[in-house]
Amino acid sequence: MRLPLLALLAKEPAHGYELKQALEVTFGSAYPSPNIGQIYVTLGRLEKDGFVRAVDVEQSNRPNKKVYYLTAAGREALEAWVDEPTEGPRVRDEFFMKLVLAPLTGISDRMALVNRQRRHYLSLMRDLDELAERTDPGNRVARLLIEGAMLHLQADLDWLERCQEDLN
């Protein structure tokens, strides 16, 4: 959550609660909404690293609030983050582990494992399709995320087919 917070602060200084709201508005339901405590902990760490600084703003008949703003070092870190290519997802597939190790466990029927997994992926795809149906077409962020999940699932299915061809 560090970098999204830096990005939001690059737009304008804000206090913790405003940052929480901005995250929610930007990503809608697509981003698991952080609780306010997490946000303050992250801001504290960013402050310690010199990426943000806080000023106390007095409020009439309420306690002071801390408004955070981006430092030059913070802006540099943010630019470096945006600028560098993002690591691709790593294949970290528990199913593949099962498939390879199956004969060692005495469950040597890889064909059955693959078949069950294929049907499971198709169930997940159906679920995503229904989710897409229920998602507001105006919510582009959510729509793109669902589409991304579908494309990943398709790749998993294609890979499964390769496993079935080669391991049997």
Binding site: R2, P4, G28, A30, T135, N139, A149
Partner: peptide, 12 residues
């Protein structure tokens, strides 16, 4: 009532 938030794990 699941939403897109159930299927993503944004990092960063």
């Amino acid at each position: 009532g699941g939403t897109a938030g159930d299927i993503v794990e944004l990092r960063g």
